[in-house]
């Protein structure tokens, strides 16, 4: 009951905001060149979908984001595990990861374009770097902060390294990874879209770049809304996955 009433209030606020925006546009308070009305944004969006061209761009962005997300997860989780288990590797990796974490990682985009060209690879690389640094810290810290009492339980029950990994470390790390999955999805899309923005011939970032260079505010806003809608959809999916894998957290 409580949650649904919160959702209802939020939806009402959103509708009110859009209504205000629409009325302000119709009354001529907003310059349509800078701030087109919601109805004309909706029209642009409909044209985008109806034209069919959008799907190619969506496909390109999704391909880059998902490939980068998957590869980033594998790389980040792998390196995090390796660093947590090997002090020497941790010594070498930690400063690199701290540095990569501190800088705005999208500054690497131009370099990836020079190295990998304007195709899919440079976008995947950027998404991968964004995701893998996040996952590295999730796993690395997750393993180091594993509940020592659980480690002792396994040991007093006679369990060795195999059971420690299977019964304590992997589930702990899964919890950390799942807790960061939504952020990772967001990062993967950031990487893909920013990569396309910098240099590409396809993708939502490319369309955005095009809309910006032609001063088309309506198309820009429509694209932003499309990207938000798809990321929200993915958030909902990862939340379901999270709830499934972490069902032991429910009381």
């Amino acid at each position: 009951m409580k949650i649904s009433s919160v959702a209802a209030r939020r939806a009402a606020a959103l509708i009110l905001l859009i209504a205000l925006w629409e009325s302000a546009s119709r009354l001529g308070w907003l310059d349509p060149f800078y701030m087109p009305a919601p109805s004309s944004v909706a029209r642009v969006m409909m044209q985008l979908f109806a034209g069919g061209e959008l799907w190619t761009h969506l496909g390109a962005t999704f391909a880059a984001a998902f490939t980068g997300l998957a590869a980033g997860l594998v790389l980040g989780v792998g390196l995090g595990f390796a660093a947590a288990l090997s002090p020497v590797l941790a010594e070498l990796l930690e400063p690199v990861m701290v540095l990569l974490n501190a800088i705005p990682r999208v500054i690497l985009a131009p370099l990836f374009v020079i190295w990998l060209g304007i195709g899919l690879a440079s976008k995947v690389a950027l998404a991968l770097v964004l995701v893998s640094v996040l996952m590295f810290f999730a796993v690395y810290n997750g393993i180091r902060e594993v509940d020592q009492r659980l480690v002792e339980r396994i040991r007093t029950l006679g369990g060795g390294r195999r059971f420690l990994v299977r019964e304590v470390y992997v589930p702990s790390v899964t919890a950390w990874v799942m807790g960061n999955l939504k952020v990772a999805v967001g990062f993967a899309f950031t990487g893909a879209v920013v990569g396309e923005f910098v240099a590409s011939s396809r993708g939502l970032g490319y369309l955005l770049q095009f809309a910006q260079s032609t001063y088309n505010a309506g198309l820009t806003i429509a694209l932003i809304v499309v990207i938000m809608a798809f990321v929200l959809l993915l958030f909902a999916l990862s939340e379901r996955l999270e709830r499934r894998l972490l069902r032991w957290r429910q009381t």
């Binding site: 509940d147 009492r149 659980l150 339980r153 396994i154 029950l157 006679g158 369990g159 059971f163 019964e167 304590v168 589930p171 899964t174 919890a175 972490l246 032991w248 957290r249």
Partner: peptide, 18 residues
């Protein structure tokens, strides 16, 4: 401190599995 991600049954069976 039981394993939070294992059921009561799995927690009890843990030593046997080991």
């Amino acid at each position: 401190a039981l394993l939070p991600w294992r059921t009561a049954r799995q927690n009890v069976a843990l030593g046997l599995r080991i």
